[in-house]
Design a protein around this nucleic acid. Structure first.
Lengths: 341, 341
DNA sequence: CATGATAGGTTTAGCGCTATACCTAGGTCG
DNA sequence: CGACCTAGGTATAGCGCTAAACCTATCATG
């Protein structure tokens, strides 16, 4: 068996509670001499507190769940862009002596199960649809501090962290307009369900309107965030819409597929068509020409998620339920002035 | 407070232990009627067992650690290739009602800490160097079932899962030889430390020898597994080694950088130089031409890791300490016969 | 000199669960 | 007809920890 508080107490000749207080750095009344003696023994014997016992006795687990949708028996859907956030979250939490439990969620009920079973202090929801988050009720989540990433829900129970999707789109489209484009297409996944895409779409519309460019619904396409769908879209665009001189997309991977699709049909980027991606993923610089794209600060995003969570856990809830982080446009090689007619 | 075993027992009019036995599906003596009544109440009240209490009382947590190196205050190093394995591992474990705790390890001592503190049943080590795994001693790991991924250690305490790196290299290099190449370079990160790279290097040498091609040390380069380093290597190669007609690399990302580096210097792939990558990552099909590469079955790898772990946990240890999985060559567009002189 | 403060602890009572030993009524067997 | 199964449970004793209340010697204070 592992060494316990009791063992340390016996060896130090004090009560178990004294050891507990010292180990937890409580501001309890303990003399310096005793404290040091205990710490010494703790170190010598390699004592490590039992998280389960703590969790049981203290009603706090110092465990945070990372809940990610998983279609039933399938594996998690963590895209490369998301995984960076995971790493950052882990670091932030580790720094605060919290731990991260990764859990795929196939049915909504599993969220409750995970929260209750492990007595989670908090949870981060990654990749859920806004509607799912909206459906979360107080009785399912207890008093867990819930943070949803990249959602636009109306649920007062969940804290939210996202980057400025509206502003990012504005930046991107304004850049294209400034270059002289007027026939600018929008490509992203179905935005009925996801606020992120809707926000970017609104940003797109807003800039067009502000510049006196009429909104043309035929320039808006629903394209899934995959290379294959981007490619198919690119081919379609090249064949059917010679008038389009620029495309704003909601993801780098889509943009890269799109560029390839255009190339297949003999149209070059940015010569014939300008393309702007979104995310500034690693991919963006692997392709030639390098992708002009909108960058989010993922590290800040993770840090903010943890900060929001810790604030709620500490009880000092603040008015801001949701934080929106700044984004910036990274100008690289895929956006240029439109070709002369 | 949440509903506990005691609550269920009171409502069902039986003892707490009877409920516990029913909930855990023990083959204890309980009448069908009682069992059903209890299960009914459990469902109605939404009872979920407390994992911490179980872990404390049963000395088994049903928790598996996913330990990943993290340089100190920095975030985890999960490359896109690794993240797929993480997802697969989570699925396999979830299916068996285990949970995954993600933990970055900055100092070796943290491994012990994590294991002891959370009373982990098992742990998966992802991305550690062979030497680190070799250093793990019985007193640090207790009786946790440890599985190391992609390691070639000599540590009898750790189970190991990897794919056939030697064979993968053989496949790749044999393909290049079959195409007619004789000046074949090898590019990979420092292989003094990592068995994976060493195995691939040995596979490379073996095929050369088998085909009567003299080994030329000047064709072997240490290149880190990044796009930037691959690019720099490509430029160097193009300028300094016009004799090289093919390169076998240990990673797709390196290969992609390499191809770009060659292109910068005016050399085309596969026209002037053939390139073979490794991993068959998503990236491989995003570039043009699509990358010829060696594919591993990541899903099988994760499944095997979990199987090995469960076997050890069940006590029926089997002779095979390590499992090596098959790989296959994916022929795409970056390897072709060498140009005529 | 009674009265507190204060430092430096200790004791008690669980948290929710599991392992293990134990109990009892009714049937079975030689 | 006493010994003994067996079905169907129950009772007890923790697992390792924390929160909260309690204790005692010492010293200052009006």
């Amino acid at each position: 068996m592992a060494v316990t508080l009791k063992d340390i107490a016996a060896e130090a000749g004090v009560s178990l509670m004294t050891v507990s207080n010292v180990v937890n750095g409580k501001k309890a009344r303990v003399s310096e001499a005793t404290r040091e003696r205990i710490l010494r023994i703790v170190k010598d014997r390699g004592y490590v507190p039992s998280a389960s016992a703590r969790s049981l006795a203290a009603r706090s687990s110092r465990l945070v769940g990372l809940l990610v949708p998983a279609r039933d028996e399938a594996s998690l859907t963590i895209d490369p862009h998301t995984v960076e956030v995971v790493g950052m979250l882990e670091r932030e939490l580790r720094r605060l002596d919290y731990h991260l439990m990764l859990r795929g969620i196939a049915h909504r009920a599993e969220i409750t199960e995970a929260l209750k079973s492990w007595n989670l202090d908090g949870a981060v929801l990654l990749g859920f649809q806004d509607a799912e988050i909206d459906r979360l009720k107080a009785d399912t989540i207890g008093d867990v501090a819930l943070v949803a990433m990249d959602s636009y829900s109306a649920n007062p129970l969940a804290l939210e962290v996202r980057s400025d999707d509206f502003g990012g789109a504005e930046l991107a489209v304004a850049h294209l307009v400034a270059l002289g484009h007027t026939r600018i297409a929008f490509a992203g996944p179905g935005f009925a369900a996801t606020g992120v895409v809707r926000q970017r779409f609104e940003g797109y519309r807003t800039v067009l309107a502000a510049n006196g460019i009429a909104f043309d619904e035929s320039l808006v396409s629903t394209v899934e965030t995959t290379h294959a769908d981007g490619l198919a879209y690119g081919r379609r665009l090249a064949r059917e819409r010679p008038d389009v001189t620029a495309v704003f997309t909601t993801a780098d991977i889509l943009a890269i597929g799109l560029i390839e699709g255009l190339a297949v049909e003999g149209r070059s980027v940015p010569g014939d068509v300008s393309v702007v991606g979104y995310d500034d993923s690693d991919l963006a610089v692997y392709v030639t020409p390098k992708l002009t794209t909108v960058a989010q600060d993922l590290s800040a995003k993770a840090a903010e998620a943890v900060r929001l969570m810790m604030d709620r856990l500490a009880g000092n809830d603040r008015p801001e339920q949701a934080t929106t982080l700044e984004v910036r446009l990274i100008e690289r090689g895929t956006a240029a002035p439109p070709a002369r007619r």
